Simulated scan of single mutants.
Amino acid sequence: MSLAHQIINHAKQAYPNESCGLIVNDAYIPCDNVADDPSETFRISPDAWQPADAVVHSHPQGQRYLSGADRQAQHKMRCDWWLAFFADQWRVLQYRYAPLLRGRTFDYGKRDCYSLVEDAYMLCGIKLMEYKRKGEAQEIADNAFIVNFPKSGFYPVELIDMQPGDVILTSIRGNANHASIYLGDEQVLHHPYGGLSRREGFCDVWHKTMHSVWRHKEWRPDMMTAIANDLEAQTIWQS
């Protein structure tokens, strides 16, 4: 039986409470949920805990995205999380480990503006194309954003049609050299060169340097829940 089927069977047995478990060496280890309110959250007993490749739990009420509390715990544990949830049927999604979206230190090619977009979309259930990073100057010269965005499933939209979740490309000179996610209400999420990733106002400077706006073909408005859950986490951990 596949890991997904084992996880789903455990989630069904625990319903309407949350199930929980661990993946260790490609094996699923079900655990008891010892939380005070197991219908709302989960806790694995210290006696059952062991180093794991992934932490597993369920959202029996159908929430398909990691909550803010989930993201805080995942960042603290620094491992993948698998989530079983019930919508029209039981499903299992895998969320690889990524630092919280705010408060990241800058490391070009590892933690930068594209990495932030990639990780935010991963939390929404969209896997973007991975491509070899060549350094900032070369990527700008190659017009890498414009070349690679269509290959990753993005298509351009008019500024007047911009919606939360769209990616804004900006340019100080020449080709597009920076990406940010539009959050709505004149707010963007981005990782500036040399600084910490952050949310800030979509001010006049942004408007003056805008290059283009892009939307992913798999994007749905409810996916903003995943990004909002991360941003509303109580503690911002620096990676």
Rank of each mutant, 00 (worst) to 15 (best):
L183T: 01
A176C: 09
P192M: 09
A176D: 11
V188L: 11
H207T: 04
H190W: 00
Q187D: 01
Y193R: 08
Y182S: 05
I172R: 14
L196T: 05
Y182C: 07
E186D: 15
T170H: 00
G165A: 05
W206H: 14
P192L: 07
H191C: 07
D185A: 14
D166P: 09
G195K: 15
Q187A: 09
L169R: 04
R199D: 05
S171P: 02
D204G: 01
S171T: 12
L183R: 05
R173Y: 12
T209W: 01
G174C: 09
H190C: 07
M210R: 14
V205K: 11
A179E: 10
A179Y: 06
L183C: 03
H178W: 04
I181D: 03
G184I: 09
C203T: 13
V167D: 08
S171I: 01
P164D: 10
G201M: 01
L196K: 14
A179D: 03
P164E: 11
D166W: 11
W206R: 09
E200M: 09
L169V: 02
W206Y: 15
G194L: 05
T170N: 08
C203V: 09
R173M: 11
R199F: 00
Y182W: 12
S197C: 08
S171N: 04
L169Q: 02
G194I: 02
Y193L: 09
R199G: 00
H190T: 13
L196C: 00
H191I: 04
I168W: 03
Y182A: 06
L196S: 07
N177R: 06
D185P: 01
H191F: 00
A179W: 04
P164R: 12
D185S: 13
I172E: 14
S197K: 03
F202E: 08
G195L: 14
L183I: 05
A176S: 13
P192W: 07
I172V: 10
G184R: 08
L189D: 08
H190Y: 11
D204W: 09
W206A: 08
G194A: 03
T170G: 03
D166F: 09
C203G: 09
V205W: 13
H190D: 14
F202K: 06
Y182K: 06
S180W: 05
Q163A: 14
E186N: 15
H178Y: 02
E186C: 01
H190E: 12
S171G: 00
L183E: 03
G165E: 01
P164H: 10
F202M: 13
